[in-house]
């Protein structure tokens, strides 16, 4: 009988519940046995659980206990699935990456915290990675299919990344009709723009589509919301924020550069009040600048 463990590190607690309720996954679980899932009362001393076939891990490593459990479960598990964007890039939980522990906890609790928050992938090598906040139903189905292959034994030779990884723009329903003329006409507040069905960037709305992996089937975009980057960086993207700056810096007001000159362009760029919040909502612990900032604090 296949033995499953559910390990929730610091997280919102939603991902694994949703995963459990997915019919295809649920079927697999029914045929097997859940040996560890404290949130649902299945508690046990990991030392005594013995070998686990598949461990689903969600959340980030924020506390020292997170790290202990994570390392333990990696040791005892045949297959580790890093589930959800938090576990791979930090996700929303990662937004505390730059805060000192003292800023988020009091007194003796400070000691329980790691100096910063990091995704699971910074400490262990998972076998399967499932980004998404939360992962979509299609991705869950793909996960069920993949797991079936290894139920009776063995593990993937190489890390499996369960979404295609191409940039969201590739198949975007709002692709610009004439890419040569594509231009970001300024930086606008999405609430003040009457959406006309065109590419968000062409309307002056910051959309992280160019740097974000497609694993969502343009869910937000189809519902008239620009991409916020929850799937994490697309394949080849080094850093969502820095790559995005490279991209929008190229096409922002490109036809008026010579007229506006540097001061005019600066004025427009100043409208982007919180670039860090825009660019790294889901990947702050992975940002190159986070690494630099932490190094200066002596954390890295």
């Amino acid at each position: 009988m296949t033995r499953y463990a559910f390990l929730e590190l610091t997280s919102c607690g939603d991902c694994l519940s949703e995963l459990y309720m997915n019919p295809e996954i649920n079927k697999l679980l029914e045929e097997g046995e859940i040996v560890y899932w404290p949130a649902y009362g299945i508690v046990g001393d990991p030392e005594e659980i013995g070998e686990v076939d598949v461990t689903f891990i969600a959340g980030t490593v924020r506390t020292r206990r997170d790290l202990e459990e994570l390392e333990k479960f990696r040791r005892i598990s045949r297959i580790v699935v890093a589930y959800g964007t938090c576990s791979i890039y930090g996700g929303l939980n990662g937004l505390t990456a730059l805060l000192e522990p003292r800023a988020i906890a009091d007194g003796e609790y400070v000691k329980l915290l790691m100096p910063t928050v990091k995704p699971v992938t910074d400490y262990i090598e998972p076998d399967i990675l499932v980004p998404g906040c939360p992962p979509t139903r299609e991705v869950m189905a793909r996960l069920a299919k993949t797991l079936k292959k290894y139920i009776s034994g063995g593990k993937p030779e190489k890390k499996i990344f369960l979404i295609p990884g191409e940039v969201l723009c590739k198949h975007c329903p709002r692709r610009p009709s004439n890419p040569e003329k594509a231009e970001m006409p300024g930086i606008r507040d999405p609430n003040e723009v009457v959406d006309d069905g065109r590419c968000f960037i062409e309307q002056g709305i910051l959309c992280l589509g160019p740097v974000t992996a497609n694993g969502c089937n343009h869910l937000c975009i189809r519902f008239n919301h620009p991409c916020m980057g929850c799937m994490g960086p697309a394949r080849g993207v080094v850093d969502q924020g820095l790559n995005m700056i490279g991209s929008i810096g190229s096409i922002l007001l490109k036809s008026r550069e010579v007229k506006l000159l540097f001061p005019g362009l600066a004025k427009e760029l100043d409208k982007l009040r919180d670039p860090m919040g825009y660019f790294y909502r889901y990947t702050l612990p992975k940002a190159m600048l986070t690494k630099l900032a932490l190094r200066r604090r002596g954390v890295e």
Partner: peptide, 23 residues
């Protein structure tokens, strides 16, 4: 291998030297 055909380079080139072909 790495190009997803987003077209940002096409929009950037001041010489119109880049085109999208077969994606």
């Amino acid at each position: 291998e790495r190009c997803d055909g987003c077209g940002l380079c096409v929009a950037t080139c001041p010489y119109s030297a880049i085109k999208l072909e077969d994606g």
